[in-house]
Design a protein around this nucleic acid. Structure first.
Ligand SMILES: [Mn+2]
Ligand SMILES: [Mn+2]
Ligand SMILES: [Zn+2]
Ligand SMILES: [Zn+2]
Lengths: 137, 137
DNA sequence: ATCCTTATTGCGAACCATGTGCAATAGTTG
DNA sequence: CAACTATTGCACATGGTTCGCAATAAGGAT
């Protein structure tokens, strides 16, 4: 997925803040807070304002190329967009957030639609607990 | 579930703010914001402060008798505690939040534990979409 | 019923993540 | 390169929630 294209298609400009935020998002395989992203951006260019980071993130989300998730604490977490079927496993011990795929979400959507007439636009599954690493101490 | 008992068991006092907040929570079958709860409380006793409402809600959550959920917008939503298996269907049109029960969550927990060593403490499933009422216009 | 101890309150100010108005800046197109 | 205007940086506003502290009121004992 190329930022430039998506922006061009929507007659939006490719700016330094947007490029930097996007690069951080792509290169990290974490679920970052806006602040963490801003910090990372600042190691490249300290002159970029937090507002621009927020504006970029909001825009990317609207464009469908970034995903915002709200886990327990602090603010939203950001990452490149991925399917709802990739659910989030949040370890309460070490704090890591893992992905887990399967059919759960798809089956749930289908069941809700066919048996209850509820048409889902997006499904968020967050599992809090203890990861296998932390279970083994 | 009697508030008085739970509080007594934990050597906590039964106060007017706590009783009022609990009554609102019990008598509504909605998912209320802290502000909505405070407003409702104020119709009974205008002298009760929002801080006390927040403190009561936080306490109830720690005691396991209230449940806090974060849906899309604005602040947290509160209700009497219920099982994780009761998942939330949030209608983007009319705003209503419905419950849906089943085995989905239980099966997911089991799968994660046995096949991935992830021991879940709580599972949150939020489905956003259009309810059957709103689909029918 | 009254006193005592201290948990709980009301109040105001602080907080933190995020959004905004506006003049200055910098993409983009020709 | 010039012109147009989307986007930025800045500083400040916001909204939901929390905190410190002195005043109040539960609950146990007398
Ligand atoms: Mn993810
Ligand atoms: Mn509920
Ligand atoms: Zn862990
Ligand atoms: Zn609806």
């Amino acid at each position: 997925m190329h930022l430039e294209e998506v922006l061009a298609e929507n007659e939006l400009r490719v700016t330094r803040p947007r490029r930097l935020v996007w690069d951080i998002l792509r290169s990290s395989n974490d679920h970052l807070t806006a602040q963490a992203i801003a910090d990372a951006v600042h190691t490249q260019d300290a002159s970029i304002n937090v507002s621009s980071v927020y504006r970029a993130l909001t825009l990317f989300s609207e464009l469908g190329i970034a995903r915002e998730s709200k886990f327990g604490e602090d603010g939203s977490r950001w990452e490149p967009a991925h399917s709802d079927e990739m659910i989030h496993l949040v370890c309460e011990k070490c704090g890591t957030v893992d992905h887990h795929g399967g059919q759960v979400v798809t089956r749930l959507r289908d069941h809700l639609a066919s048996d209850h007439g509820f048409v889902s636009s997006n499904v968020n599954v967050v599992v809090n607990g203890t990861c296998s690493n932390c279970s083994a101490q």
